[in-house]
Computed example of a mutant assay.
Amino acid sequence: MKTLLLRSSNINSMFQQLSENLGGRLSIDYQEHQLDLENMVGQGIIRGLTFDTGISYLEFNMTFSEDCQLIVQNSRLWPICFAYCSDGSLMHSFGVDGEKRKLDYFQTGILASKEKKEQIFWFKKDVNLKFSLISVNMVGSMPSHKSELHNELWSTFFDQEENGTFIYIGSQNLKISDKISQLDAIAQKGIVRSLLIEGLVNMILALEIQQHSDDLAHLEKCTGSLTRKEMDRVKELSVFIENYPEKELSIKYLSDKSSLSPCKLQEGFKLMHNRTVADHIRDVRVQKAEELIKNTDLNISEVVYSIGFTSRSYFSKIFKQKYNCSPKEYKDRQFTLVATA
């Protein structure tokens, strides 16, 4: 079994240790570290960065060639870790001899120890793993940021635990997977990329905390009747809609394409996007239209029909609801901005 030992929460030291243990090519872009691997240890990418607020983000998108344990030692910061598994599965324990708990596909986990126990993540070989870890440092954070968030996390996940550890493995959450997909899609570089990542990481953190609250409020309620394969199909449909908004995307068509019943379609989209299938299609189309108006020379009618709408007046109505101006006003503003640049 391959052992990865991380003795520091400092992002530079952490990735130096990962590079020394795994090999690969390490690159840094405006404090974001990325380790690309394609060797005997495994294939994939590990990336991460730390923000001024004391929040760190670490993501493994890997297939290891042998079983691997990641040991995270931290004697100073008492971090609360928010874990999420987008693909594959893994095990977690506090200490080598601690109880192992499984974090499965689309599941959330919240992990903390007042006793500063080492955290161990167990990865299986030949498993396509996509795993993200958000750590909030509870000691040593900048004073200006050690306020409401830290106080709330401390009272929720530390004060009530007499034995010093807090482990919560939550129900499945597709909305977090969607936000992580948005992280992966960021194409910008430098400070813009860093700010976009920080914004999405904060949204993921909020969803993780909300998931915990929702699960406590609905202990007697299951998270839904969708199986893992059915949730995969919902994700695939979401990508399909984003890529082909101009198609005739009726419930029957999507149901036939995914082999999901209309009821399960609606349930899946409520889980992932917090809206109905029709509302999601409409929102995707309006966003695509905004991009076309801003970045192409197409007139409004051409934009309307290119993204699947048949009524210009209806399109204008929902565009104004979303952006607080008509499509023509928006296009005229873009032209004015370009002319005066």
Score class of each variant (00 low, 15 high):
Leu237Met: 10
Asn61Ile: 04
Val136Gly: 00
Ser19Ala: 15
Ser301Leu: 15
His92Tyr: 08
Ser326Trp: 00
Ala206Asn: 10
Gln182Thr: 13
Leu200Val: 15
Asn295Leu: 02
Gln210Leu: 12
Arg275Met: 07
Cys325Arg: 07
Asn163Phe: 09
Thr227Met: 05
Cys325Gly: 05
Trp154Lys: 03
Glu66Gln: 15
Thr336Tyr: 00
Glu148Lys: 14
Leu77Glu: 15
Asp67Ile: 12
Tyr30Ser: 10
Lys229Gly: 14
Ala112Asp: 04
Gln31Trp: 09
Asn202Glu: 08
Val303Ile: 04
Pro262Ser: 00
Lys252Trp: 03
Gln321Asp: 02
Gln334Pro: 02
Ser258Arg: 01
Glu161Gly: 10
Ser213Asn: 08
Gln31Met: 09
Asn151Phe: 14
Cys263Pro: 13
Trp154Leu: 14
Arg285Trp: 05
Phe315Lys: 00
Ser311Trp: 06
Thr223Cys: 04
Pro245Phe: 06
Gln266Gly: 05
Lys116Arg: 08
Phe315Gln: 01
Cys222Val: 13
Leu174His: 00
Ile300Arg: 01
Ser177Ala: 12
Ser144Met: 07
Asp126Tyr: 08
Gln107Leu: 02
Thr53Trp: 12
Pro262Asn: 03
Asp29Ile: 01
Glu302Trp: 12
Glu236Cys: 07
Ser301Cys: 08
Val72Cys: 12
Gln31Pro: 01
Glu59Gln: 06
Ser132Phe: 11
Leu103Phe: 06
Ser147Met: 13
Glu59Arg: 03
Leu4Glu: 14
Lys175Cys: 12
Leu174Gly: 02
Lys2Asp: 14
Pro262Met: 01
Ser19Lys: 11
Lys221Trp: 13
Gly109Tyr: 01
Leu298Ser: 06
Asp52Arg: 14
His273Thr: 14
Gly98Ala: 03
Asn324Gly: 04
Asn151Val: 07
Glu302Phe: 05
Ala339Arg: 11
Leu195Val: 11
Arg101Trp: 00
Ser75Ile: 14
Leu195Cys: 15
Phe157Asp: 00
Thr276Trp: 10
Asn21Pro: 12
